[in-house]
Nucleic acid binder design. Sequence first.
RNA 1: CGGGGUGUAGCGUAGCCCGGUAUCGCGCCACAUUUGGGAUGUGGAGGUCGUAGGUUCGAAUCCUGCCACCCCGACCA
Length: 490
Amino acid sequence: MSKGITSKNDDYSAWYNELVTKADLAEHSAVKGCMVIKPYGYSIWEKMQAALDKMFKDTGHSNAYFPLFIPKSFFSKEAAHVEGFATECAVVTHYRLKNDGNGNIIVDEDAKLEEELIVRPTSETIIWNTYRGWIQSYRDLPILVNQWANVVRWEMRTRLFLRTTEFLWQEGHTAHSTAAEAIEETERMLNVYADFAENWMAMPVVKGIKTANERFAGAVETYCIEALMQDGKALQAGTSHFLGQNFAKAFDVKFTSKEGKLDHVWATSWGVSTRLMGALIMAHSDDSGLVLPPKLAPIQVVIVPIYKSDEDLAKITEFADNLHAELKAKGISVKYDDRDTQRPGFKFAEYELKGVPVRIAIGGRDMENGTVEIARRDTKEKQTIAQDGLANRIEALLEDIQTNIYQKALKFRSENITEVNSYEEFKQVLDGKAGFVSAHWDGTPETEKKIKEETKATIRCIPLDNKQEEGVCIYSGQASTQRVLFARAY
RNA sequence: CGGGGUGUAGCGUAGCCCGGUAUCGCGCCACAUUUGGGAUGUGGAGGUCGUAGGUUCGAAUCCUGCCACCCCGACCA
């Protein structure tokens, strides 16, 4: 491992890539556009999964699993859906290889599939085809199912975690007897995502709805949470879609209501992906490496002994073991790093790179004085404190760090939402401080497209809690009733 | 798929213009001294210079084809 990483102020992309690689989160794989998530990175994802999964269960959902392959014909049943995904699908055409006689393995042309299979880019179609058999009556509803899965979208350009050809995610797919209930579900899950982003990831998000241009292919309405990264670019962190009866109609899923009337089922789908890992990294990290919120840190506390002799080490180890047990009893995950192959300074730097929230260093001096040196990752402050009551102080410190990094991110975001009233001002802010730009828009897709072509900025969302105010569109000068949030985005 | 760039040890690189069998740093191995912020010294291992041809007494270097990767654009959770 070479020393340090590129400063994020010099080259944000290089900083991000080096951080992901050097903090042992992930690396590029032999397959173009795909990613190997390394054990340390995956352990963070597992913590995210566990927290989200519990939130899904607490809101009445169950997990299930549907096939990886989707027959091409299913895929094309919903017109907008197929149009949205057609250009980025991996297609399976054969099911067998053979030896060509010269020692080369080739595709066996005799083993051509009658109907091609699409590797799922999302599972609405295969799931709604399945739901048809599950639903006859209003008594069968609602169906509240989630699946943890991998999906494939053949993107032209990829980036570790933020956009990879294959990615891990969860996708919820629910079926309801009324539109109102489905909309309520859509909003409920958006709130779950926002709750997770803010309380677990310590990342403030704006809840809003997408414009027609940015809407999910096949949805009636797309709700989203939008986060702001430290370089001033926005990141869509999660989406929740009200699908209306589009998929029920495409897959002929009907139910008999209490009143005896036959109607199509109402649907929602919602998902977050390993992209959240990218968001987590970019939201908090600095030039020393990753900064993890304690609630998602696989290692919350690391203890580094500093010793000159085996006797010193034995004493420190005894102390560390006791502290370890005390912290463990509080549900805090601890690593005691007594490797003698690395020196303390190296370990300090390494755990900073990996974002461990709290580091305790303890040496002979401390053992004599009854103290330890405690360092917090978020502010990099160090202090020497008494060993008495240490476990309680660490517990409080972890909570403090969780709060502090959220507040820091919140402050950054507040400072980077800029209201503008002219197109000139709009472009200036985009090219200067960046961030979210709050501006009046005439509500037409044409204006949105023009602005995107000219500035690369898109409407990230129309915030849910938007205040209504008279104004004129910064681009067309037409009347507008509210501001929307623009930004350049990942 | 369009525009630009790069391929030299596990990683990052010098050398290429002007041809003579490869430089430096990190990492790795051994030993010693070290250990409160990324240790130091000594010794060592590791490269058919992306690939296939061509020119030449001789190619990392010049020429041609191919391949791979990166950046910008179209696409996008």
